[in-house]
Design a protein around this nucleic acid. Sequence first.
DNA 1: GAGCACTGC
Length: 688
Amino acid sequence: MEVASIPAKKKAKTNGMVVNKWTGKVYSRRYHEILEKRRSLPVWFQKDEFLQTLRNNQTVILVGETGSGKTTQIPQFVLEAVHVEAEKNPRKWLVGCTQPRRVAAMSVANRVAEEMDVSIGEEVGYTVRFEDCTSSRTVLKYLTDGMLLREAMTDPLLQRYKVIVLDEAHERTLATDLLFGLLKRVLRNRPDLKLVIMSATLEAKKFLEYFSGAPLMKVPGRLHPVEILYTQEPERDYLEAAIRTVVQIHMFEPPGDVLVFLTGEEEIEDACRKIVNKLGDQVNVVPLYSTLPPVMQQKIFDPSPENRRKVVVSTNISETSLTIDGIVYVVDSGFAKQKIYNPSNRVESLLVSPISQASAHQRAGRAGRTQPGKCFRLYTEKSFNHDLQSQTYPEILRSNLANTVLTLTKLGIDNLVCFDFMDPPAPQTLARALNDLVYLGALDDEGNLTKEGEMMSEFPLDPQMAKMLIVSPEFNCSNEILSVSAMLSVPNCFIRPKGEAQKEADEAKARFGHIDGDHLTLLNVYHAYKQNNEDMKWCYENFINHRAMKSADNVRKQLMKIMSKFNLKICSSDFNNPNYYVNIRKALLTGYFMQVAHLDRTGRYLTAKDDQVVHLHPSCCMDHKPEWVIYNEYVLTSRNFIRTVTYIRGEWLLDVAPHYYHLPNFPNSETKRILEKLYNKRERKNLE
DNA sequence: GAGCACTGC
């Protein structure tokens, strides 16, 4: 790359005005204004150093704290370098930059388009699920990490790209972790491809070892100093301590907004009430969590009336996804709800657990964005140093990997044990995932992808759901299974306000209720929504979340497209056919036969094979307890609940999943004895 | 008779 020649090219002028090499137009005034600001960003002081490093290495690791400008500037630097080379080589090359979140990919792309004085979707674009805002002119593309992984499925060597920038690598999302291993392989086969790993704080040593030989470049951030204050003694009750701290900040500290980190919706609402009880309208208290409607979320950005102090009580959402300016004080409870996966019973659950040191660091940083701040940690310094792990466990170690294994297999990784994971998952987790995929028919006994598995891997869904979609035409109900799948893929559509309207909401929900279960209830809701022309008012009157429905419709369209691609028939039984719902329930079971529970003689449900005692979730719409049910989710909270449950018949298990309900290798249990009876009954029938 | 940290394809 001829980095040195860049300034010369910039001198192309018309009437003394500098011309934008991308559009051939004279740069706007706005461009020059922004350029001035860009030049003061910390990364600009290391621009030449970065380009030099990139020229001499295939992989570069760049660590830059918040405010360094790396996400917007580095891809543009890369582009300059690549463009110089591309002029000699007319082949089309793309610079791709991944983000863990859709919103970030879209907003950063918009910002960079503005900085480059081009229209979004032209030279600079983005690709996220449901939206591809790029064109044949695009040279710089922001995309979600999951999207790049998808692209790798059809383009294993990522031939369209000349440079890939993996941003926010420290977050260690599942997709980013898979891309690490994948890209290492691709780099070996494509000496011309370059990779830039960008991260806030990271376990530098671990990254350097993993990308052996890659140089590490550090860029300072532009944060104001944040004073860290610990408690002298461990706090017994972090909620009470958090409220007390907010009151103290309000009474003794100079003006400035407060951000409190707690763990969940209920706790946050509770804390907000208590703070209001203590301080009344001296402060402006605002809750913040993901399920809050966007209008309410927007409230955190509104200036407080009469310059009152704002207190934002938030979940982890403001640690990564949302940035609130003007925060001067952070109160860190030291806890967050985190996903835990237990491979032995395949249960994912949310558990309130201590955060990592890296996470605590990130939280503290939120206090220093606009001026020097203070962070009150509700734990002791000793606890910080000795009890908190340095980094949060990467997601890959906390997830069910069935989908991951399917993706990797599709990507041509046939020996998972040899795959170069930065943190290899537990062998038991991988084994369980492989097993499940064999049961689902996605892999054969040798672990090779089957034709069906090939199709399943193309659906952006869990393998069970993909399976039920693929078989649904055989049950003449793919239309209905598409709708159910879409509804299961979006947030809960039922709104249940606290207080007086609750009863009304429950009655509204009951009107959609289907006697045979929740999956069919969801189908009823979807049908009613369409019959009422997707009307917002109708949703409001029926306590249905309009956003969720719109998003379900979107998902449904995407899934239908994939179905058509494989020539899977889109069909329905006649609604008056007595088997209309039977067919749907059988199709559901063909995907979810591993998530079945049986009612024992004492009136408890036991999961098939694992024999765990589970309870119907109170949100379940069935007014009776059928002998056999399938469930969509196993949730571990105050009790073991199964949620979204539908009635099935035991005999169907023998038809739909004889390999899974093969008795010789079934553990001894009441369920097994019942299954034996079913098999015997069937045999007698066959003999008659 | 209870809940959904947060993402993503």
